[in-house]
């Protein structure tokens, strides 16, 4: 039981332990303790060896440095450890470390090259730089003079000089570039159109329609000399669109205070605005020109009123019917559908 437990404790060294355990069978407790101590000791040595091996492996680069003497002290440490080695396993580890050290030593020696009488590369590099003027002040800017070194080198080279130019090319075959033949679109000159040339007079100034139309309504109202029904004024029985436009133009006049829209009993025009309309009054919205209110008027409490007018085609038709509108007061504007050819609007 106990033996098995130990084995699993230290599987790594299982084979070693096994031998000892055999004799250990019915030994006294003292003896047991001594064996235990030895085992501990061995384990310690093995651990130290392993540590040393790992160290050496990890510090490989460092150990290879020419000035680094740790490789030697490594071997010393191993020698010290070896004094306490009395098992084969430990000895194997020692051998492994030694082989490794020797390997490193060889590589190191190779890197070092022969010490005495060896070729001094550092010196060589310095001399190279000197030859190329490296330690002169001006070379800071110009860099090393490789041409100078090159001329020295050329004397020792058996390179065959060749010439750039020889009579005739050596059957030079240009790499045929895979040019995709682009089909050029050939246009018939007859089909071609010259872009229109523009001169100043070609640009027709676009008239300000809105202002013009607003003025037109104002003129019409002036000629009326009396109030006119809003719908008679704006509705164009020929065109719903122009009706809407008319309302739009009229609104400018109203906004500017040039025209007033009032609700009036057309049958009794004498009744004042503010009065309560009597029963069955025929109240219609009437439009007339008025004096433009001054700033004082506004200061005196005159308020601007805003009204949004709604109209759709159904209402438009109904209004035409109700007011029996046959003719438009504001003449139908002719839309310039056909622009004069070649004219541009700016």
């Amino acid at each position: 039981m106990r033996r098995q437990q130990r084995l699993s404790d230290d599987e790594h060294d299982a084979s070693m332990d096994q031998d000892e355990e055999m004799h250990n069978g019915d030994a006294s407790q003292d003896e047991d303790m001594a064996k235990e101590r030895i085992k501990d000791e061995k384990r310690k040595i093995r651990q130290q060896y392993r540590q040393l091996i790992t160290d050496t492996e990890e510090r490989r680069k460092e150990l290879m440095e020419p000035t680094n003497n740790d490789l030697l002290s490594n071997v010393d440490r191993a020698n010290n450890l070896y004094k306490n080695v009395f098992g084969t396993h430990e000895a194997t580890l020692d051998a492994k470390l030694l082989v490794m050290s020797a390997d490193l030593g060889m590589q190191k020696a190779k890197q070092l090259k022969m010490g005495q009488g060896g070729f001094d590369e550092t010196e060589y590099l310095t001399r190279l730089i000197n030859t190329m003027g490296g330690h002169e002040v001006e070379s800071e800017e110009r860099g090393l003079n490789w041409a100078k070194l090159g001329r020295m080198a050329a004397k020792w080279s058996r390179k065959a000089p060749t010439m750039d130019f020889m009579l005739g090319p050596m059957a030079v075959e240009h790499k045929t570039r895979n040019m995709k033949q682009r089909t050029r679109v050939v246009r018939d000159p007859k089909d071609m159109k010259k872009p229109q040339e523009l001169r100043e007079e070609d640009i027709a100034r676009q008239e300000n329609e809105t202002t013009k139309n607003v003025m037109q309504i104002s003129d019409i109202l002036e000629q009326m000399e009396e109030k006119v029904n809003l719908f008679h004024l704006v509705i164009n029985p020929e065109s719903f669109g122009q009706t809407v436009e008319n309302i739009f133009y009229l609104s400018f006049l109203v906004r500017d205070g040039k025209v007033s829209i009032t609700e009036e009993d057309v049958d009794n025009p004498d009744i004042e605005d503010g009065d309560e309309p009597r029963e069955g009054a025929n109240i219609q919205p009437m439009v007339e020109l008025c004096e433009t209110p001054t700033a004082e008027d506004y200061q005196g409490g005159l308020l601007k009123k805003q009204m949004i007018m709604n109209i759709d085609m159904a209402m438009w038709r109904e209004l035409i019917e109700v007011y029996d509108i046959r003719k438009t007061m504001i003449p139908t504007r002719v839309t310039k559908e056909k622009m004069e050819k070649g004219k541009w609007y700016g």
Binding site: L128, W146, A147, K148, L149, G150, R151, M152, A153, A154, K155, W156, S157, K159, P161
Partner: peptide, 17 residues
């Protein structure tokens, strides 16, 4: 220096080194 290496000379130096 019978041969004038012209512009090749620097490359020759580098190669040699």
């Amino acid at each position: 220096s019978a041969i004038d290496w012209e512009s090749e000379v620097e490359d020759m130096g580098l190669l040699m080194v």
